[in-house]
């Protein structure tokens, strides 16, 4: 499998070249186009209950799609819903990534995807919701972000604070807790930035340079409010 990022920047696409027989797991809205040699299978990843919990609790699509090069080699073009970066992460079997639900674009077939429940407080207060994806195994993982993606490396016991809604992914060796932003939290609620995550190293944290909730409320101010 060969992945290439086309048009890097705000509106990129991932071009994935599959050898005959190879397959790829993609977020079900991600497919832009495929060669005629490729079939799309909608397969439940990780059992029915897991898929169900994913749909019910994260509002995510019921299925990941599997794109399989059944009739010979071919290519697939994939794109995220929101404008922003695409990054490729090489999974080496020992790193495990936790990915917020909108951050996953695709992964090679050997990549393991599990939905994980966060604690109630994390789910309620964090922007990412109750379920996040735990991704491990060996192969390639494609993440997408809203805006640019930025990687932070944390040394053992090094601490770092990230606004919830800017989180894309982090490695399982980090620990984190949700905290209230220090001051003016009622007014900051309206800007969607009331809570932060305090991470503790070692490990990696991936951030996005734009905040989807903030963007949403920015858009909303141009839509006339109506109420009875």
């Amino acid at each position: 499998m060969k992945i290439e990022i086309l048009y890097p920047g705000a509106f990129p696409m991932a071009r994935v070249q599959l050898a005959a027989g190879e397959s790829l797991k993609a977020e079900s809205g991600a497919m832009v186009s495929i060669s005629t040699t490729i079939d799309v299978e909608s397969k439940v990843e990780g059992g029915l209950l897991k898929a169900l919990s994913r749909r019910v609790l994260t509002g995510e699509h019921f299925f990941f799609q599997t794109l399989r090069a059944v009739r010979g080699a071919g290519e697939a073009l994939l794109a995220p819903t929101v404008p922003g970066d695409i990054v490729i992460i090489e999974l080496d079997g020992v790193h495990e990534y936790l990915v917020q639900k909108d951050g996953f674009l695709a992964g090679s077939e050997q990549v393991r995807i599990e939905s994980k429940m966060q604690s109630l407080a994390r789910g309620l207060l964090g922007g990412e919701g109750f379920f996040i994806l735990k991704i491990s195994g060996e192969g390639q993982l494609i993440l997408n972000s809203f805006g640019a993606i930025h990687k932070v490396e944390l040394k053992p016991d090094e601490e770092y604070i990230v606004d919830n809604s800017h989180l894309v992914a982090w490695t399982a060796t980090t620990t984190y807790k949700i905290e209230k932003a220090s001051s003016g939290w009622i007014s900051s609620f309206t800007s969607g930035e009331g809570f932060v995550c305090r991470f503790r190293g070692p490990g990696l944290v991936y951030l996005q340079s734009r905040n989807p909730q903030g963007f949403g409320s920015w858009i909303r101010q141009f839509i006339p409010a109506s109420s009875e």
């Binding site: 080496d92 079997g93 020992v94 790193h95 490396e153 053992p156 070692p202 490990g203 990696l204």
Partner: peptide, 19 residues
């Protein structure tokens, strides 16, 4: 064959796959 991940104050933040 890596089966562990090693971190350190003098090592890269992403850790070193280790056996």
């Amino acid at each position: 064959q890596s089966n562990a991940l090693c971190f350190g104050s003098d090592l890269p933040g992403q850790g070193i796959p280790s056996h």
